[in-house]
């Protein structure tokens, strides 16, 4: 199949292969899930509500910001960030907070029939690394920016 014929449905990672959690799960549960999923190369948790609708995504960056609030702030150069920031009081409490407080809401969806350039466009526009793909209102999986990038650059090198 040439890259021109390729649709997003041909390159999705099926939903069942991807980590997911309900939005009220704690940061600690999400950390555990990404920890056991580390070897699979999936580094984002898809977040669902009780009706199993996708409501957001929780990335490694979101988790780090949640664990160490300093990461979420803007400081001038030279601000000291120490291990103590991770170990300080309050971290355990933050681990008990629900992930909905830290996730990015799902902003856009692509259709399985869209071509991969459309997918790349949506990823760039929303500045995300993961694009949910639906077919007939059903979420069928996600496309990763790395995979889209690889396909596009392959095409570029053949020009």
């Amino acid at each position: 199949m040439s890259h021109r014929q390729k649709k997003l449905r041909d390159m999705i990672i099926p939903l069942s292969d991807y980590p997911h959690m309900p939005y009220w799960a704690t940061l600690k549960e999400a950390v555990a899930q990404l920890n056991v999923a580390y070897d699979t190369g999936h580094h984002t948790v898809l977040v669902f509500d009780e009706g199993y609708n996708l409501v957001g995504m929780l990335s490694q960056v979101d988790i780090l910001k949640g664990l160490i609030p300093k990461f979420a702030e803007h400081y001038s150069e030279g601000v000291p960030i120490q291990w103590e920031n991770l170990l300080e009081a309050g971290t355990e409490k933050r681990l008990d907070l629900p992930i909905k407080d830290f996730m990015c809401e799902a902003q856009t969806l692509a259709d399985g029939g869209d071509n991969l350039l459309k997918g790349a466009y949506l990823l760039v526009q929303t500045q995300s690394s993961l694009l949910p793909v639906i077919e007939a209102e059903k979420l069928i999986g996600v496309v990763r920016i790395g995979d889209v990038f690889h396909e596009i650059t392959n095409a570029v090198l053949k020009l």
């Binding site: 409501v55 809401e105 007939a136 979420l139």
Partner: peptide, 23 residues
């Protein structure tokens, strides 16, 4: 209990996308 509120669809759930797992 950490579970979801029963019918509170206000707030962030209002922005919910209709993309469920199960047909």
């Amino acid at each position: 209990w950490k579970g979801p509120p029963p019918v509170d669809t206000k707030g962030f759930l209002a922005t919910m996308l209709k993309a469920s797992m199960d047909p």
